[in-house]
Computed example of a mutant assay.
Amino acid sequence: MKFISWNIDSLNAALTSDSARALLSREVIKSIQVHDADVIAIQETKLSAKGPTKKHVEALETAFPSYNIVWRSSEEPARKSYAGTMFLYKNHLEPEVHYPSIGAPTTMDAEGRMITLEFEDFYLTQVYTPNAGDGLRRLADRQLWDIQYSNYLADLDEKKPVLATGDYNVAHKEIDLANPKNNRRSPGFTDEEREGFTNLLNKGFTDTFRHINGDVEGMYTWWAQRAKTSKINNSGWRIDYWLVSNRLAGQVRKSEMIDSGPRQDHTPILMEIDI
C-alpha cells in the first residue's frame, strides 16, 4: 500500500486562495495526485469547528476523486481555526475511524491533532504534534504530550501493528537539520523534545526514512517561511515522519520526500509498505 502525509498549513488557503503561495500549494497537490496513494494524511488544516465547507469538499473531490474524507478540527475551549487534521482514503477501503483523546495537558486534546484509522490488520494514525512555542513557553506541556502520545501508540501496538505519521515538530538528531549548533535550544531541537522522540521509538517503533535511507544527509521536510532563502540554501529540518511498529520495518519498501518545488514550509512524505 502507498501512503502520503503532508502538513498543508491551511487547507482553505491552499484550495481557495489566488495568492502566489496558494498556487505553489496547488502544484504540490498535483505532485501528490500522481502517486495515487491509498491514504493521504493532512495536518494543520486550520478549518473551523464545522469542518470543510462545501467549496472545500468540492475542491478536494475534484483533486482526489474516489476518496472518502474524515476530519477533525480545533474546538472550544481551544483556539478557533487552529491545528486540525484530515484523512482522505480510497472509497473501497472501510476503516473504522477514531478520534482519540490522550489525556494531554491544557487544550491540546481539543485542538484536532489526531485521527486514527483502524483496519483489519493494522492501525494508521496521524498527529500534528504541538510546537514548544516561542521562548519554549509550551515546552513543559509538550513533554507531557510526548509521554501521553507514546503511551497511546504503545497501547495500539499491543492490539495490532501501527503505522504512524505526521508533523512531529522535532528534528531527532543533528543529521536531521542543517544547522544543529545554532538551534540547540530552538523549538523542535531541544534535548527534551529529542529525548521524547527517542523514548517513542524505544517503545517499539521504527523511523522508516532512516531505516530505508540510512544516514543520508541534507534531506529535510520543512524550510522556514520567515527565511526567504531557507529552501534555496537547503537550510531545512526533518520534522515529518512515517513510523511503523518494529515488526513491520522489513515490509517497508520506500520512505521518502515528495518534491514540493520552490514552496517553503512542509513537503509531503511518502511511504510504501507491503501490508
Rank of each mutant, 00 (worst) to 15 (best):
R226W: 11
I29S: 04
L144V: 15
R142C: 03
S101T: 14
K181V: 09
P187R: 06
G196I: 06
I232C: 00
S48V: 06
G236E: 00
R247E: 11
L153R: 12
M271E: 13
K46H: 11
Y99W: 11
A178W: 14
T107H: 08
I212C: 05
L139T: 06
I275S: 11
S186E: 04
E44R: 01
L23S: 14
G218S: 02
M108V: 03
F3R: 13
R79T: 07
D121K: 11
E75Y: 00
R72G: 04
V28G: 05
R238K: 02
E272L: 06
D36W: 11
E75L: 00
R138W: 06
W222A: 01
G103M: 04
Y99V: 04
K2T: 14
R79K: 15
S260F: 01
N246K: 14
T116M: 12
E75M: 01
M86I: 11
N7M: 03
D18G: 13
I29A: 04
D157Q: 14
L124D: 11
Q148H: 15
A171R: 04
S81T: 12
L163I: 15
L23Q: 15
S10W: 02
E44V: 00
N183E: 03
V39F: 14
R194S: 03
L139F: 08
S31A: 14
R79G: 03
W237L: 02
N91G: 06
N179R: 12
Y99M: 05
D38A: 15
L93P: 05
S17W: 10
K160F: 09
D176Q: 08
G250S: 05
S235E: 07
P77G: 09
K181P: 01
P95A: 06
D274I: 04
T190L: 02
N213T: 05
Q225E: 04
N131Q: 13
D207F: 02
T125N: 12
E75A: 05
A63L: 02
N151S: 10
K55N: 02
F205R: 09
M1C: 07
T53W: 01
L144E: 15
G84L: 11
M1A: 13
V244F: 14
I40F: 13
R26G: 09
E272W: 08
N179S: 08
S25D: 05
K160N: 04
E174N: 15
Y67S: 07
S74L: 03
I42E: 00
R138C: 00
A37C: 15
I258P: 04
E174P: 12
A83G: 10
K181Y: 11
N182Q: 14
P268Q: 08
G261S: 03
S150D: 12
Q33I: 03
E195C: 02
T208W: 10
I102T: 11
S10C: 05
K231I: 05
T45C: 12
I29R: 02
T190Y: 05
F209C: 00
R138F: 06
S245D: 14
M86C: 13
A132T: 13
